[in-house]
């Protein structure tokens, strides 16, 4: 068993593009759920539109990537508006279910054979993200690696990571600026009790809509990074559990905090990859009985996702405020 490899893999996942995508998705969700109290269970829908908007604009319409990215973000924004108008007045639980449903509708439509001409349907879509990688300042030869051991990235990956983490930092700072303002205070008041906010003259619908739009566009950014990273998009990558992973990251890091979603995303990928690598190494161990090794072989991914579920349960049981949250605030929540 080589723990250097395991840790290297885990660290690479923790700082790689997946963690960036998850961090952005969680920052957006934090605005919805953490600050406004909107139980958005369809965050994956925003990510999906960001990814597909970008991919389809470039792959199907042949436009420049720099046109595709704003299109992806615009679609995420449009989804927020289209989704918000009928649903923002609903009971929290109903809102949750309708948002899941909306994201599933979009996924089914995008992935249907009828949509092959536009989105590639079930065949997925791929495009040339050369416009982005042309700007890559890192040497990107086949031998170029940045890092140590298995914790190493190619030049292309380094460029995605650099831009991605810069974006995360920028977005986090923007969120900090608007949340500490009186505007952010209104969001929190809506989260606590929207009737109270109404009785104080706040147009609750309008604020919720603004929050949904901002968080949705940030989710769209996650999709754009995803599209660039994979040079395309696949409908199977946008199932409802993506939203649940995003919640896991957010809850792990601490809801309604500024850095919680970022730390949570890093931790999420670190732990998930650590478990998977560990199991893969374990399955190769000679002392392990053959039956167990056979059972593990190829099931590492399934087990590590199951662990995410277990982690959610344990987290809620033992540290519902996440690693950075405030215990007292959580206790006030037990209403």
């Amino acid at each position: 068993m080589d723990f250097d490899i395991i840790f290297g893999n885990a660290a690479r996942a923790a700082f790689g593009p997946e963690a960036i995508i998850l961090a952005l998705a969680a920052i957006g969700l934090n605005i919805h759920f953490g600050f406004t109290g909107l139980l958005n269970f369809g965050q994956v829908g925003f990510i999906m539109l960001g990814a597909y908007g970008t991919s389809v604009a470039v792959a199907t319409f042949g436009w420049s990537l720099w046109v595709g990215i704003p299109i992806g973000l615009f679609l995420a924004l449009a989804l927020a508006v289209a989704l918000g108008i009928p649903t923002l007045r609903l009971h929290a639980v109903m809102f949750a279910i309708v948002t899941i449903a909306a994201a599933e509708i979009i996924r089914i439509l995008i992935g249907s054979t009828d949509a092959i001409g536009l989105t590639g349907g079930p065949l997925s879509v791929s495009f040339d993200a050369g416009a982005f990688f042309d700007l890559n300042p890192y040497a990107d030869g086949p031998q170029d690696r940045y890092g140590v051991g298995t914790f190493a990235f190619t030049g292309q990956q380094m460029w995605v990571i650099t831009v991605g983490w810069l974006l995360v930092a920028l977005v986090s700072f923007g969120v900090f600026l608007i949340i500490r303002s009186p505007w952010g205070r209104v969001l929190k008041s809506i989260r606590e009790d929207q009737d109270a906010a109404r009785s104080l003259g706040k147009n609750v619908f309008s604020y919720k809509m603004q929050a949904l739009m901002i968080g949705g566009v940030i989710g769209g950014m996650a999709g754009v990074i995803d599209a660039i990273k994979t040079s395309g998009a696949d409908p199977n990558g946008f199932r409802p559990q993506v939203t649940f992973y995003t919640y896991t990251a957010l809850l792990l890091g601490g809801t309604a905090t500024y850095l919680g979603p970022v730390l949570g995303a890093i931790l999420f990928w670190f732990l998930r990859e650590w478990i998977e690598s560990f199991l893969r190494q374990l399955a190769a161990e000679a002392w392990l009985p053959g039956a167990i090794a056979d059972f593990l072989e190829g099931s590492e991914g399934i087990i590590s996702v199951g662990m995410v579920g277990l982690a959610l349960v344990l987290l809620m049981l033992f540290r519902p405020q996440g690693i950075t949250g405030n215990r007292i605030e959580m206790q006030l929540d037990a209403r």
Binding site: G174, L177, I178, S181, P182, W183, G184, R185, V186, K188, S189, R191, E192, D193, A196, A197, L200, G201, K202, Q210, E329, L332, D333, R335
Partner: peptide
Amino acid sequence: LAKLSVLQNMLLGAPHQIGEQLWAAP
């Protein structure tokens, strides 16, 4: 509003706040 401070509760009552508009908030 349980998770806001007493002062923040009070400030929410103030009308016509420029900072409550998104464009001005940052």
